[in-house]
């Protein structure tokens, strides 16, 4: 059933702080069970570093179930590593072989400055949501939940896009450092639902413009979708483009009607 991998060598990015000069550090893992998750391997390495009186490697992680979106890591040049539809925390060592050299780097984007080692600051994602990634529905006074029937395909499509975990792999994988998949997934989730219609175009305009303050532009490579642990489709980006264009006209129209 389980077997042991030997002689894994890890090339890991270390950086003292946001302004620090980073470098790769090489560590050997003589033995590791293939049942171990990738992050457990880093845990074990950290234990050893502490034993050797060295500072542990800083990396973001939390739920380890692939849903909180805290973990990151560029593994061998792929965001979240080689397994499709899988966040780093769900990646297991059985994906690798004895003797492999594994290179681990932080996400790199100007909007995601490195905090330390492999940890980056992804707060621009929060700024995008704050700009319009919501349906205004103050607490209390909501109508009965079954008042508006929503066709199942519409609801399913909203759910497909709402599955985004905000990990930032799309930005990390994009050759342009664009956040179009993240932004469009949230936009599509809310813009296809009947509840989201009143704010549809205002939302599109403000989310896209906030996104552009921080991130690059989409040139339709499709890397984002391939790196996405939730496999969100780039169809969402097309929806965003349409809604943004319309917003430029509609928002103008309703503003000038004041």
């Amino acid at each position: 059933m389980s077997h042991t991998l030997t002689n894994i060598s890890l090339k890991i990015w270390r950086q003292d702080g946001p302004d620090g000069q980073g470098r790769f550090e090489t560590h050997q893992i003589p033995e590791i069970s293939d049942e171990a998750s990738f992050l457990e391997m880093l845990d074990i390495l950290n234990e050893r570093l502490i034993e050797e009186n060295k500072e542990a490697i800083v990396f973001d992680h939390d739920c380890r179930e692939g849903i909180c979106g805290t973990c990151s890591l560029m593994i061998d040049g792929q965001a979240h590593g080689p397994q499709k539809g899988t966040a780093t925390c769900q990646l297991h060592m059985r994906t690798f072989s004895s003797g492999d050299e594994i290179v681990i780097e932080p996400w790199r984007a100007t909007a995601f400055p490195i905090i330390k080692d492999l940890m980056v600051d992804r707060s621009p994602f929060d700024r995008i949501v704050e700009a319009g990634g919501f349906i205004t529905a103050p607490t209390g006074g909501a109508p009965d939940a079954n008042l508006i029937p929503i066709p199942k395909p519409v609801s399913d499509s909203a759910m497909d896009n709402a599955a985004c975990i905000g990990c930032g792999a799309c930005v990390a994988a994009c050759p342009n450092g664009a956040a179009s998949l993240f932004t469009s997934a949230k936009l599509t989730h809310l813009n296809v639902l009947p509840q989201g219609q009143s704010e549809r175009f205002k939302r599109a305009e403000s989310m896209v413009e906030t996104m552009e303050e921080y991130f690059g532009s989409c040139t339709n490579h499709g890397e984002c979708s391939s790196a996405c642990p939730k496999e969100i489709s780039i169809d969402a980006i097309a929806v965003m483009n349409t809604d943004y264009r319309k917003s430029k006209l509609k928002n103008r129209k309703s503003l000038s009607r004041k």
Partner: peptide, 19 residues
């Protein structure tokens, strides 16, 4: 815009999947 969006490049080789 895109150059500015990633001012520090990846220091290891990228392994593109779709691009």
């Amino acid at each position: 815009i895109n150059r500015k969006a990633r001012s520090v490049k990846y220091q290891s080789a990228r392994d593109y999947q779709i691009a």
